[in-house]
Design a protein around this nucleic acid. Sequence first.
DNA 1: AACTTATGTTCGCAATACGAACATTTTGGA
DNA 2: TCCAAAATGTTCGTATTGCGAACATAAGTT
Lengths: 257, 257
Amino acid sequence: MEREPEQRDLVGSLAKGLGVLEILSAAPGGLRLTEVAEAAGLTRAGARRLLLTLVAEGYAQQKGRQFVLSAKLISLCRVWLGGGSIWSLAEPILREVSQDVGESCSAAVLEGEDVVYVARVAGRRIVSVSLSVGTRLPAYCTSMGRVLLSGLDDAELARLLDKASIRANTPKTLTDRQALAARVADVRRAGYAIVDEELELGLRSIAVPVRSRTGAVVAAVNISTQSARFSCEEMREILLPPLLEAAAKIEDLLAFQ
Amino acid sequence: MEREPEQRDLVGSLAKGLGVLEILSAAPGGLRLTEVAEAAGLTRAGARRLLLTLVAEGYAQQKGRQFVLSAKLISLCRVWLGGGSIWSLAEPILREVSQDVGESCSAAVLEGEDVVYVARVAGRRIVSVSLSVGTRLPAYCTSMGRVLLSGLDDAELARLLDKASIRANTPKTLTDRQALAARVADVRRAGYAIVDEELELGLRSIAVPVRSRTGAVVAAVNISTQSARFSCEEMREILLPPLLEAAAKIEDLLAFQ
DNA sequence: AACTTATGTTCGCAATACGAACATTTTGGA
DNA sequence: TCCAAAATGTTCGTATTGCGAACATAAGTT
């Protein structure tokens, strides 16, 4: 079942319904039937059925002619994150690191060409990184992204970099695909990644992999800070050891799954 | 379109697929095909199609024979939440309670010795509580205030009560600082507060805490009503359950901060 | 290696989802 | 306020989609 499934093995109505859910999630003020139909490329009748089903299942609410996403999606995420998931168990570990070094500490997984934050603990600085659980960032120019990419084999990495949207966020952003591949190979060898103002000027972070029992890179953890606070060398000396320790503790938790 | 929709207006495959998504969200370690089929009350073939579709759409991943929810759902929540403040998103939750019980429903945070209203939904009564977002009321003699004070430690509570301006608004107002501290301790133990005509004759309200992930009391939600309409006992039996449910839903939103 | 369990695949078919057309409601402008 | 336009609701014939059963294959256990 690792192969690409045949189209006949998929349920088109479910795919369409999920598409409608995504459209609604990007419209916090709600949308009207016709707007949803257009956005989803469906007829009114088709979109109406899907919307009514989302309402009936509790994922959306109807206010007059507006369809608005309801908080059920949030509850579902909460169940997943909170229900003894690895990420709820990892959070105290991240909190300890964050309190130890005074910076924000996060965990993320790879989703397509992005990383998605699955756990985050804020640091105690006033000027601080404002990212949250659920935030997506491009993998190619983030420390956790680099670490997660280092867990792919060369063919997968080449394929992903080939298709990725790559742009220079700052003058320091590495955008050449071959140079990126070489940087990821460096990360693979070194066992950690430091990204220095490639996502945003002033933002520097260090990440390490979290591995499953089989050695696969399943997540990354990082510490993000301001480049004014830690040099790259200081990150290596001061931030890397507690980060490696946190990753090891999270890996211990993974051993039970 | 406000009527209950006919069954033929709903898409059964979407409903089933959402059911599978919910089953996966409650299984952080993942499930096998047969387990999902049983949990969803579907045949293997049916469950397999839905699972493959969730995988194809990015909501799940297949690791060997395990199907695991992916982080896409979380990033969808982030997109949705990104557009507004927590309290604007909490308003529909308060509205639902308000419509259910017919009374006004509010949320507030602690500022100094006052509570400050951050969200409010009016009830449908003609004689009704006329307070607004931004309104400040003294914490010591309001239900939300009592709940918020119950989140302080004893030293903080003593300090605040010592400095607070305390006066008898009605003959029922508790003004003795030690008696107030004891009442707050009661609230801490009980997990809710009822304030009975201490702010204003005829005004009775019940409040519960909203807690952050770390368990800190960060806000309170309440239902305010006329003492002619609900006895304290009825408040406990009729108003407390929906209020606790609303607090839990708002706490789900807080998980994303 | 043999057996059991679990999953993958195929195919006939019925039920489900579909869209078009008409009916009704809502909205906006004069 | 009235009317026309826009939006949504409803119905129904039908084609397509999703279905499950049966067989094939793979994985796990002893």
